[in-house]
Nucleic acid binder design. Structure first.
Lengths: 331, 331
DNA sequence: GCAGGTTGCGAAAGCGGTTTCGCACATCAC
DNA sequence: GTGATGTGCGAAACCGCTTTCGCAACCTGC
């Protein structure tokens, strides 16, 4: 498969025009008569010509490559955003260059210099969705920088992230709409931004309905076993609890196990709702829905980031992706 | 941040040598005296010079970009391999260009041509791990092609994938080692290669111990609800079953729910083992281990693929990644 | 019939490196 | 002292495309 590839110069010669005319004809730039244009294009097709992307990138000074900075690409949330971004950009002939775990790194400067030497056409910073803000790098590049699933100190940075406030509200209101009134909330660390916002907005939603939690919000960790522990506490304190909003699906998994083990039925006795839509995101089409949950919109974040990055001028500021209620069996 | 970047020519001038000498000094190629070499390098550092990667790629004809072909990048298994590959390659300054869903595409030829026009330095084909073989593309490129998590018709293709035979054996033997003797196996479609091999090798492991399944292998789907259905059947047919090997963690999740709901204890009454290690892979550090399972080694596949691709000549043939037993509560 | 504008195209200068080749000089063996 | 060999460096070609600029030919309007 090492046949010599056709160059633009070959096309020009075959079409009987100059190199520059051939270039312009194929690119649609400059003034070229329709007849010449068609002729050159036909010739190019006939010869099976393709622009050498390397030469083109070099001449144009644009690499067709987008830099991606992550904190830890092994994080499953990060991976979803990353894979989506890679898919979307690949469809647009843009490669990605991933610098993992360099985001929190001391000498991020080195990475910045490397990315600039690579002449990346844009930069995507993917956060973890929980502990923001991320330091702003926008001013260090002369190409567009977009922040995904995080936020920065600079409100003018182009940011696309989840809407934790809407998530909390959505969860609480869904439980309320099903007639549940004795509600509990089990979530992660109190200093985790996502947990904090979801809890605050859910509390507000209850207040708007003239209610309060039947038992104080349980702050703990993003872990299945914390879901178990907290659920035990909740059941002990409020035996007739009729709805639990879990800050994540992992927590919900653990909590559900305890609730069922206690002899209560889900959702008849206790309705349960999580956040993340893991069953969908993680298992692809391989699983049926079991847990009622809220889809944060990670793939949507990835899609929008990719789209915005290729826009001539993306709108500055933060865009929140609306969460989606995913109704299944547990509410 | 639009300061003019330093070129090699600037370095040469500043160091008082020719352009070619500067190039060779920095690259360590050709014969250059140590003194000159050091001097040029010092000058480059002092000026903050970095090679323009675009110019370099162009001149060398190597793009520093690896093509990646997937069937569907939203598949969670694919995403793991993809993210790992991207991480490893990024650390080596290699970008990736992802062409998703073009693998099964009719005119894969178009993608091949595009990738060749891009002058990719190598190609990675990521499969789904279940339905192989993938058509071989090796002969259509003059750069290395590696197949990950799949296999091809050509035994000489460089392939790195999971070891389904070892997985089945490992699972069966682990249950046997815990003294379980009345075993069942619940898995996916009988025509799914992974399911088939795992079932066959587990059956063989039982035979080696002079045993057979207590009830015929249940072939179904890679779904949690299939795990439930099959477990119900198994319990009805063999009430005193004492071990279940589930073909995946999703199946195990469903099966475990049914087993527990029947009043049986896990693992005291029924030991259960899955495959995939999702709790680890999907939740990162966010969850404790609950399900005893087998780690297929997707990240290891990704790491090896990236490493092999950058080797001068990767060894032809198939490499199987050894599965790892992940012991938790359910056995 | 002519100044002024428009249209279509080609020559040539990059883009910023890598790499081949040849030259001058130093070193060596005899 | 001479030829053979080796060493260090620079001139220049080259990678394949984009883009600027200028020139001729062709329109206008008066």
């Amino acid at each position: 498969m090492a046949d010599q590839l056709i160059t633009l110069s070959d096309v020009a010669t075959a079409a009987g025009v100059s190199l520059s005319t051939a270039s312009k004809a194929l690119n649609g730039t400059d003034r070229i008569s329709q007849a010449t244009r068609d002729h050159v294009r036909d010739t190019a097709v006939r010869l099976g010509f393709r622009h050498n992307a390397l030469a083109r990138s070099f001449a144009r000074g644009r690499s067709q490559t987008i830099g991606v900075l992550t904190h830890r690409a092994s994080n499953p949330f990060t991976r979803i955003v990353l894979a989506t971004v890679a898919t979307e950009l690949g469809a647009k002939e843009q490669a990605i260059l991933l610098y993992d775990a360099r985001l929190g790194d001391q000498d991020i400067t080195e990475s910045v210099l490397q990315l600039r030497a690579r002449r990346i056409d844009g930069l995507i910073v993917i956060g973890t969705g929980t502990s923001y803000p991320t330091p702003s790098l926008t001013s260090r590049f002369d190409v567009p920088v977009i922040y995904a699933f995080t936020s920065t100190e600079d409100p003018n940075d182009v940011t696309i992230t989840s809407d934790d406030t809407a998530i909390g509200k959505l969860a609480a209101n869904h439980l309320l709409s099903k007639g549940r009134r004795r509600l509990a909330h089990i979530t992660a660390e109190p200093h985790d931004h996502a947990a904090q916002r979801r809890a605050a907005s859910a509390t507000q939603a209850l207040a708007d309905a003239g209610l309060d939690w039947a038992t104080p919000v349980r702050f703990g960790r993003w872990r299945e076993d914390w879901g178990e522990d907290a659920a035990r506490e909740v059941l002990a304190e409020v035996p007739d609890i009729d709805g639990i909003f879990c800050g994540s699906d992992a927590i919900a998994r653990g909590a559900e196990r305890v609730v069922r083990a206690s002899g209560r039925r889900v959702p008849e006795d206790v309705a349960m709702i999580g956040v993340d839509n893991w069953e969908q995101l993680m298992h692809d089409q391989r699983v049926t829905r079991h847990l009622t949950t809220i889809e944060v919109g990670l793939e949507e974040i990835g899609r929008r980031v990719a789209a915005q990055l290729l826009e001539p001028d993306p709108e500055p500021g933060t865009q929140y992706v609306a969460p989606q209620l995913v109704i299944a069996e547990t509410v």
